[in-house]
Design a protein around this nucleic acid. Sequence first.
DNA 1: CATGAGATTTACATCGATGTAAATACGTCG
DNA 2: CGACGTATTTACATCGATGTAAATCTCATG
Lengths: 337, 337
Amino acid sequence: MAARPRIKDVAEYAGVSPKTVSNVINNFEHVSERTRTAVQEAIDALGYRVNIAGRQLRQGRTGVITLAVPELDVAYFAELAKHVMAEAGRQGRTVLIHQTGAVREGELAALHGFDAQFCDGVLLSPLSLLPRDLATRDRRMPVVLLGERSAGAGTDHVGIDNVRAAREATEHLLARGRRRIAVVGGAVLGRQGTDRLRTDGYREAVEAAGLPFSTDLVVPVDAYHWRDGARATARLLEREPAADALLCLNDHLALGALRALHEHGRSVPGDFDVVGFDDIEASRFSVPTLTTVAPDKQEIARAAVSLLLRRIDEPDADAPRDHVAGHRLVIRESTGG
Amino acid sequence: MAARPRIKDVAEYAGVSPKTVSNVINNFEHVSERTRTAVQEAIDALGYRVNIAGRQLRQGRTGVITLAVPELDVAYFAELAKHVMAEAGRQGRTVLIHQTGAVREGELAALHGFDAQFCDGVLLSPLSLLPRDLATRDRRMPVVLLGERSAGAGTDHVGIDNVRAAREATEHLLARGRRRIAVVGGAVLGRQGTDRLRTDGYREAVEAAGLPFSTDLVVPVDAYHWRDGARATARLLEREPAADALLCLNDHLALGALRALHEHGRSVPGDFDVVGFDDIEASRFSVPTLTTVAPDKQEIARAAVSLLLRRIDEPDADAPRDHVAGHRLVIRESTGG
DNA sequence: CATGAGATTTACATCGATGTAAATACGTCG
DNA sequence: CGACGTATTTACATCGATGTAAATCTCATG
């Protein structure tokens, strides 16, 4: 069990200086073919691998980017993580996954904390971060925001057109004759968060249809899990027995809602329609299957990684960009599809 | 936007030597109260944070452990990750999450690859790793295996009693009068993997009930997702119309199976019983809710982290340990509960 | 007041890789 | 053949933190 070889060992084996080995590793152009071959053979023979701590100490780069999401057990983030890892791999980068727990400290930790030291930049899906949190970051960590944009106007951002997506989903429900549509997870006041934007889109559609917008139909939730959807829906059914459709701000909420509707003897899509957001795998296999807004996760991952790499290479290259990724409404059984 | 302060800056600010600052940071005992306070104030005033690259280079430790799982979009792993992060946090460690993609290269990468350099040890949930892959690791990376044990007899391991759990679940189905129970995701031959162990437990229960064990009722799957469960169940229903229950080796398979049964007009638990493994959140809200084997995820996380930290501190302390975590069968609607 | 044990602090070297700048090798041309 | 420009290679310093060992300080005791 020999100690791990260092660059110096490779150099001795190949009969060159350590710096020459370094030059080979980093593809420096002025290395003769003979030397390059000899060094490569030495590397293979000794099983040498560059020590990142040494490299990072010297040049401050690690080749690692962090993906910071609120919770991995929200399937959307797990699925997004897969796409991000694939895309980063294609670009020769490694992805470190960080869970923020949807709290501000966790999000700050992704930017300044312990984890942040391993990486060159962060893809952050913020929920509680405030604009000033981004403004005050001292060591200017390259950041790309995912989804939520409200935290930082001065930062690159990737997301879908939430207002339009929610409006389209609501129009679909209206076209099916639904008239009392509730928004599970919705928000009326406060920051221009994803929840607020989607609620705005819902409101546009409802009012365009000549119906009143009522906050009684906007049901807030604590988190975006099955249990929250079930709980919120149960509450709603008591308060608003005449409701006939739900626009749920993610698929977990929608799936939990399906459960609550089932328990209250409402049939979907007979008595009730349900729409979700995210198009996670579960929505294609639930009973009934779920109509949902499908963001183009691959496009989001691609855009996010490439924006971040650009920002890492040239921190102040140009003005922050906002990439609006595509989405489509996938119609399934929960709205009669 | 000042440059990030170094230990030297703190030392100058506090009027002591860099080493003294280091002593304070590392809680060296022989530091006078006065000095400690002064240094702490300097640290706070400058916003100093230790640079991990420097520390790692010097002492070879990072305080980071890796959790390497096959796929994050399998909810069990996402939920386990939460517990592991919580427990590691309690022990002052950071968790880096690595996805192996359920392929051998990915699992090897967690042990030897790029990511491995950031961490002091690995919690690995292996699927394809061979015993020799663990045996040949050169730099002896501390490893604790989760779930699957077949890869390494000489390695610490945490898991549940898979044979007993599967036997109990099968006994439950038998007690409800089911007679042709299929195993979705099961395996008869090959390594003593989790799938094999659970199939063995199933077999024990079936044979103890005086029923024949038939490989016709063992349905292999490619992966452990909803789609695989749905596909395998559809196939089974064609081949074995008389089947009356399913033991699915994880909850996603079971939930996909529920969908396929629904499409084939079988009612659960009327005509058919279904049991899963893992007790993910979805199993508490599906229609019907899912009877499942619930491993004690918190116990698994705790045991795994503490075994790993022990192994990191004293690599050859003692013989490899095998922690068998608790589990219980949670009976829900899919078996009439 | 000198002495020595123990407490506290410090100088210096080092971990591994790479930037800088200088040294050496190679080729071409007058 | 010598000089000069370009290509290759190398010596050395450095990134930031900490182990080692030595220096300095403190204080009780003879």
